[in-house]
Simulated scan of single mutants.
Amino acid sequence: MNITRDDLKRAKKRFLLHGKKRQADVYVIEQEGRPIVVKDYSKKGKLTRWYGAYTLWRERRNYEFLQQFDFVPRLIGRIDRFAFAMEYVDGPTVAELREQPEFCFLPGKLEEVVCKLHRHRFFHLDLRKRGNVMSRHGEVILIDFASSVHFSPWNPFYWLMRPLFRYVDISAVIKWRSFICPGSLSEADRRFLRRFEWIRMFWFFNKPRLPKRPGEEENGN
């Protein structure tokens, strides 16, 4: 399927996200009788467009690598330097499944998916965001790979960053487990989260936040 900028201008758009600051606009259009998701920086300011062109190039490369897996939407392709299109996923995000015990199997499937990515030296790094983990027909679907990192086999930074990046992804799995199935965390899970909260204080993508003390309320955030 070949989608052009002229196709976008003519298409009726249903916005999923009106991006703020350095975020892309994300919307759904219909092409050839099926819904398509478009991630688009074309309406942003000049500096944001150039930043967006680089992040879209990185994310599109990540999607291209991940097409070998069935837990990632199908990439349709580049529209221009400021936009690309991919398959629309029809299903709830895990953030919509709070305290729904019939979905308690999903965090286990998410952990399997994350471990498979790690075996391929790939780290998502943004699984805590509310919309980035979805469920379709009982299976986990991951989206939004703008922050993700894929290491080549000979990259020396892989061994340096692997422990930290693994902590980031696995902590998100535990977060969603506590969110969907409150009270299901083991003592090992709680210790893992406490260790990660100390590490997170020095994580440059987040504002510093002191770890919770043992016994404080577990809320999945």
Results as ranks from 00 to 15, higher is better:
L125R: 13
F103G: 05
D126I: 07
L125M: 15
E99K: 08
C104M: 07
L127H: 09
K116M: 11
E99L: 00
F103V: 00
L125I: 03
R98G: 10
F103L: 10
K109C: 09
K109V: 07
P107C: 03
F123V: 10
R119A: 10
R98V: 13
C115Q: 15
C115P: 00
F105G: 11
R121M: 10
V114H: 01
V114A: 00
F105E: 10
K109A: 13
R119T: 07
F123G: 02
E111K: 14
F123P: 01
R121I: 01
F122R: 03
E102Y: 01
D126K: 03
E112I: 03
R98I: 14
L127Q: 02
E112N: 13
L110C: 14
C115M: 14
L106I: 10
F123M: 10
D126L: 07
R98A: 14
F122H: 00
F103A: 00
C115I: 13
L106A: 10
P101C: 01
P107Y: 11
R121V: 06
F103H: 14
E111C: 04
L110D: 07
H120G: 01
L127P: 02
G108L: 12
Q100S: 06
D126V: 03
R121D: 08
K116R: 15
Q100R: 15
E102H: 08
R121K: 09
